[in-house]
Amino acid sequence: MSDQKEIDLRAAINAISDVVQNRPRPIRNFDQIYMKAGDMVLQSELVARWADEKRLAFIGDGDAISVCAAYLHKRGILNYGPSQIVVFDFDERICGAVTRFADKEELGQLRAELYNCLDPFTCDTRFDCFYTNPPWGASNDGESVKVFVQRGMEATRYTGEGMVVMADDEELEWTKRVLANVQEFVVRSGFFVQKMMPQLHQYHLDDAPNLRSCNVIIKALPVERALEASVAITSPDRLAHFYGRDNPPRVKYVRERKRLEYGKAHDDEYSFELWE
């Protein structure tokens, strides 16, 4: 990894502020819940360091940690970062926001693809690592986490590393069950848990304002394995409670309503009262 230098905290926070300003508003139906800005600064630095000079796939990224990591690197606030970042998200607004920001700030290493993780993962790029902060699976014992993690492992052809962000709370039993189930799943998939960073992040989450999440970093075992083709996920058992109890996925893509005045106040929000 490149030599680390001291980070200009003010510049880093202002850079994250640029990214936050560019994000679409979250849709709670799909567990789009945004991380708080201070935690985004620290998480972006961590991701940039962890994936330095690597090809990094984001399996969903409403938070825009991908954009933050690329932007902090480009601005010279960090002197390390991924060599290539691709965001795979089913929300066209998120993909559009990534693309527009990458274009405006000339982040050549960053791009986005519209992709629903229930479809087979067919991207040709072989990624070194993946990052995901999926729906946390309170109602399905982590099954929705496993879907995103599976796509991440496929993105690395089962040879790389992954950073998985999951709920982690001392008081809530379901978070422990999910952590245990996902760890069991990654071990069964030929990975092992390399590191866990407990109770790190907080969110704009009004129904659980104190709920935190952790980073679980996983790594593929150094064994040869025959790769099977990625297939669609259709099993009702895996999907029945994907977005919460009795809430299977019904939406394939969130489509963006294109606007000329992107990023500006919408003219249906206000009217002018003129001086006489």
Binding site: W136, A138, S139, A167, E171, L172, E173, W174, L205, D207, A208, L211, G244, R245
Partner: peptide, 12 residues
């Protein structure tokens, strides 16, 4: 009864 705070006491 359900959601991200499932299991937490009503008082808490």
């Amino acid at each position: 009864a359900l959601g991200n705070s499932m299991g937490l006491s009503g008082t808490r």
